[in-house]
Amino acid sequence: MVRHIRGGRARLRVGLVGVAGLVAVSVVGSAGVSSAGVRATAQRAVAQFPAPSKALCKKSHYKIGYDVFSGSQPFANLVTAGLVKAAQSIGCASIVKTIDNLNGPVAVGNLKTLVNEGIGGFVDFQVLAAYQPAIASELKSAKIPGVAIVGANLPGSPDVGASNYGAAYQDGLYMAQQAKKRFPGTVPYVLGGAEPSAGAIIMGRYYGAVAGEKKVYPNLPSSHVIEVQTDGTETTAYNNTLSALSAVPSGSVVLLTGVNDEVTGGMAKAAQTRNYSHALVNSFGGDPYGLSQTCNNSHYVGAWYLEPRLWGEDALVAIMEQMNGQKVQKQVGVLGEEVTHSTAWLHCK
């Protein structure tokens, strides 16, 4: 893990071990949350990637292609917004965006179109690993550098994104530490909202959260660890958590977190419906819904904030450095940070 601080603003990043990415995190724009405030408290690493700046502009203009798996998925929109805004801010880069709607052949076709339009670099935000080799092959034959926002790894190109396992580990660790403080001497039940259909990368979030919780409670019995399977929606998370809680004695300390803010929200509501007054919740992702719950729901210890806007910035830096002929680090993942009711930029009342 690398941690660097520059100019009072630092972002924590980890080298990834193949478990980075994002598929179905319903994290949405930070309405009501000051972006500047976020940046003021975020921690930034500078070992390989500086913050985007005009220093990247070695040429007069950089035409960068960007294919994204969704034009509506909240997290993807934030990443896209981060990328486009960063490009605008440095002035010498323009982003040509295409959307493939999770259709691999369309993604490959989009890349071909972008190449025909004369792009000099390509940012690839995919979740379908099966088509990444074809995209890598296209890039190779067009002699264009690429960078993947994972999702899915792009062979031969660097990856940026979240450290799913690492971030979830921190999420679980923080919540368990809070539980130990608030309910000393008890052995909690931990319920993790998983999303198996999203694949191994996202399952890393479930495993990471449980590992973090076990770090604090090393002797946690296996019957106290409950995997709640979801499809990434709040509704299913609510329904399945309601059922799973039947295995948890009433009055128990219950720790809840899920693969995204909505899943976590559904789980929290289920615990509330079944009257678990000693339930602690740590949201994961940090979309406005998760952050609003952090402010308004006393069961929330906070939210693990994945800083999606910064992913786009990372991608921009990674692709422009390559277009400038520089080598870049293979894998960089944003670890994120815990935000709580007392975090200044949340402005909780």
């Binding site: 929606t233 709040e234 509704t235 299913t236 609510y238 909505e262 929200g265």
Partner: peptide, 16 residues
Amino acid sequence: VTSELGSAAPQIGDPY
């Protein structure tokens, strides 16, 4: 479902 979850969202019908 909106009442159960205490929230409104476009995904709530997906499981049905």
